[in-house]
Design a protein around this nucleic acid. Structure first.
Lengths: 257, 257
DNA sequence: CGTTTGTTTGACGTTACTCAAATCTCGTGG
DNA sequence: CCACGAGATTTGAGTAACGTCAAACAAACG
């Protein structure tokens, strides 16, 4: 009977309950461990898509990994992100899904051997369920985001993000507590790419939420939530909190002949 | 040894190769069949979210099923759609994923018994792989869409949709042929909800693509593709095809004191 | 064949993007 | 530990791009 592999004993994928590796029997775990590689990424480091073809199956142990695409004109979009516990299988991602995986914060991933991974899916019901649920949950997040974001105004998007992220991911100390403080887990620039707006607009939207009395911006990236209900109302476009970004200007338009 | 169940013999999920039921052994198939229900939806019929809680696992045999959310202010968004062959598992979709499933065209779905479905995942590697790949592919479509749409202009979105849909889904006769004709597979209103723009804008964008010489609008919903390369260039924002929706207006603004 | 539902068009309003400049932060090396 | 510089944030002014509304038209449906 195999021992618990050295590398795994400190990896969240193993020691946190309901994470993928925590339910594996020792012999499967050590087989997986031998052919996998744990890796730490600093914020802003990225895994290029080409690299991924060699190691397309991985789990997230810590941090946040974003799927970022750079377009011709240089602007980027963060289409999705993966969080601790996610099991990601990018095998067969069609070639045109050309994006890289950017670490939005310090991130630990463990690349898994696809062969052993498949073997586990086939043999271990419990692990398969965890992987399945993770894949499901990735889809749900994407659907939620796609359903909510496109028709919202900038300030509404921001409010939505704050509410949504607090609900789902009690990631670091501050956010875990569910207190009135919220730390935006990554740079505003990245947040802008995720919400599909410009960094300048993020800034103005924070101002807007402040002026409504929903939040207070303590430092860059640290928000105090003053009125959760109002924030929700703004996020979901309740009449309570309609939030135009600036006051309407009144002017007259003269057509130039 | 069980016979092939009557209902299944005409269902695409069974008779099309690489669809879920096609790889099941007869005894598993008939066990699944007994506890499942095939259902035909006319266009615009929908399955409410509440209904889904009872039967959250299903496969698409024909047609297109959209995930639609109606917001407070009455506007809708189609966050995703499912196409023939997709195996969908909405168990545990958190309550706030409140959307219904709308048939965008005539659609045939088969609700599967969750219990038997799980048994199949556990016992039949081949079927599990198909279901897994389907779930993956649903994620990829969502990522692709989220990566591409938000920062595009309306005409670019439309061009993207045409190219993308042709690539992926050779669904009906016209589109299957990959000829120069493309039939928009659903109503423009739904297309607008999917692309996150207004129906009026869809109309203007078709005009815009026509004026660039990329397409010709034969009838409502039937497009002739005149210049595939140009269309792609517009979709991906190549300098070749920058596509403003209307000519810039020139006027002067006078502030009212 | 009428009623409803979807599409087109025009005129106008609103929102957020763009560009540029000032300020701020943070990581790094001295 | 401090100073420096690259990168991030903020602000303002101007404008592009789409939304909104309304009305005419067309198509689909029974």
């Amino acid at each position: 009977m195999a021992e618990i592999p050295e590398g795994c004993s400190r990896c969240a994928l193993f020691f946190r309950t309901n994470f993928f590796c925590s339910v594996l029997r020792p012999n499967l775990l050590s087989e997986l461990s031998e052919r996998s590689s744990h890796r730490v990424l600093k914020a802003k480091e990225y895994v290029s898509w080409d690299m991924l073809e060699a190691r397309p199956v991985f789990g997230i142990a810590e941090g946040i990994l974003g799927v970022r695409r750079i377009q011709q004109d240089g602007r980027g979009t963060i289409a999705a992100f993966f969080v601790p516990g996610d099991i990601v299988d990018l095998r067969g991602a069609p070639e045109r899904l050309q994006s890289d995986l950017t670490a939005l914060t310090r991130t630990e991933v463990c690349h898994l051997s696809p062969a052993v991974f498949d073997k586990i899916l086939s043999n271990c019901d419990e692990a398969r369920e965890i992987a399945w649920k993770s894949l499901q949950s990735q889809s749900f997040r994407l659907i939620e985001q796609t359903a909510e974001l496109p028709k919202k105004r900038a300030a509404e998007k921001l409010a939505w993000f704050i509410c949504e992220f607090r609900r789902f991911h009690g990631i670091d100390g501050v956010n875990g507590a569910q207190g009135p403080l919220f730390r935006v887990p990554f740079k505003n620039v990245d947040l802008a790419d995720y919400l599909g707006i410009q960094p300048e607009t993020i800034s103005r939207s924070f101002r807007c939420l402040e002026s409504k009395g929903a939040i207070r911006l303590l430092r860059s990236n640290l928000v105090e939530i003053l009125d959760q209900k109002l924030l929700l109302a703004i996020a979901s476009r309740d009449p309570a909190g309609v939030a135009p970004l600036r006051e309407a200007r009144s002017f007259r338009i003269l057509r130039v002949s």
